[in-house]
Design a protein around this nucleic acid. Structure first.
Lengths: 215, 215
DNA sequence: CTGCGGGCTGAACGACTGTACAGCAACAAG
DNA sequence: CTTGTTGCTGTACAGTCGTTCAGCCCGCAG
């Protein structure tokens, strides 16, 4: 009567990675409400108690899942930019193409993101995770906008405010794409972002400058 | 022993309005999770059973609360535009000032909005409510952008796509303001939106036109 | 005053939530 | 082969959840 092992041990690190993956799967399936301790453990094939063993609570696990997914997205966008090296304008275009790639526009992925956003005000740990990832996101945009300003000899250009603007545009498009896919196509999404940069270059940048008209 | 009436009757219409108000209060206080049947009925000072009596279920009540709040916001924005009659550009500015007024930037109001967004994918009734209100929102923007295009003699201008863009920008700013107030000031929010229109006028509109360069 | 329609109550139900904890068992070390 | 560590199990607990329904009782009609 040699019965199979009832469970297999794992390095805490590996197990945590497994749990995070299961959490993301659950979030994608049924949103924040569908990501209960029991469903996550079932998805991961472990017992309910294991989560409390590795994390202080559910919020911490979800927050780590949020960090994991944002890190993955940011890496993808950074890579897309680096492959299109020539100049800042080209790199922005690469960023847009990456933002509206099939991988990132996956409805399930956006559903998970919506769940995170909905929980930001509820769970402190998720709030901190958002602060961190959004800060990093904006820093990436700030950098490339700064480079664009240098290449085009804009002075006193407020890249920080422009980055807030562009990230808001991207998030807004992403949000609507998640809430109501079909409102616009990925190509139109890219088009909208390109138009924003066009507008900046054509003269819209003036509002992002100091009093001097040298910008 | 003349004891006080244990409850007071109301016209279904009035009672429903009361319940919707209580629902909004709960959503503002603790997000979607904090808006349970029991908490809503406690807030409204009625019994738990009354909600099922007037609505088919919780989702329908929340959806009606969503419709109520979007209707209120849209009326406010429309009024702001109508008071600044002169031209389309001025009306857009009025729309922006309204969008970033203290009344609409109320953190609690945005928390409630976030709760709605998070529930769109979960509840069918809320999904329909979003579709309706977002369509109306975009129609308002489309109309004023159309008028701007006429006043400036733009031909083949795709006001629809431009409206999607502007609504995404506004929603994105609103979203971030809710998730992390302090990222930008209301004045900066207006500045960002004005810069978008500036960019459109300066030449960014080309991407929103057909092949002809007459736009 | 009486009668009655229906707005309203509130206990009960079954399902689900996150967390705690006592102890089992897998697996490396000796 | 033991033995020890500790990753892991799974029941139990104390809640909360949305919904149901038999019947109470408010307030208007007559």
């Amino acid at each position: 009567m040699n019965q199979e092992a009832r469970f297999s041990r794992m390095e805490p690190e590996l197990r945590k990675a497994n749990l995070i993956e299961a959490t993301l799967t659950c979030l994608k399936r049924h949103g924040f409400q569908g990501a209960s301790i029991r469903k996550i453990s079932a998805e991961a094939g472990v017992s309910v108690g294991l989560i409390s063993h590795h994390y202080s609570g559910k919020d911490e696990l979800v927050a780590e899942a949020y960090m994991a997914i944002t890190g993955r997205v940011m890496t993808l966008l950074r890579d897309a930019m680096e492959q299109a090296a020539p100049n800042a304008r080209e790199r922005l275009s690469a960023f847009f193409r990456g933002s509206f790639s099939a991988e990132l526009l996956d409805p399930q992925l956006i559903d998970a993101w919506l769940a995170f956003w909905g929980a930001v005000k509820t769970a402190e740990a998720i709030n901190k995770a958002h602060d961190h990832s959004y800060g990093e996101y904006r820093a990436i945009l700030r950098k490339v906008l700064m480079e664009l300003a240098q290449e085009e000899d804009w002075e006193n250009f407020d890249a920080d405010l422009a980055a807030i603007s562009l990230s808001a545009l991207l998030d807004g498009l992403w949000l609507e794409s998640g809430l109501n896919p079909g409102t616009f196509t990925p190509e139109q999404g890219i088009q909208i972002c390109e138009a924003w940069v066009d507008g900046l270059q054509a003269g819209g940048r003036q509002r992002f400058c100091g009093q001097t008209s040298s910008c």
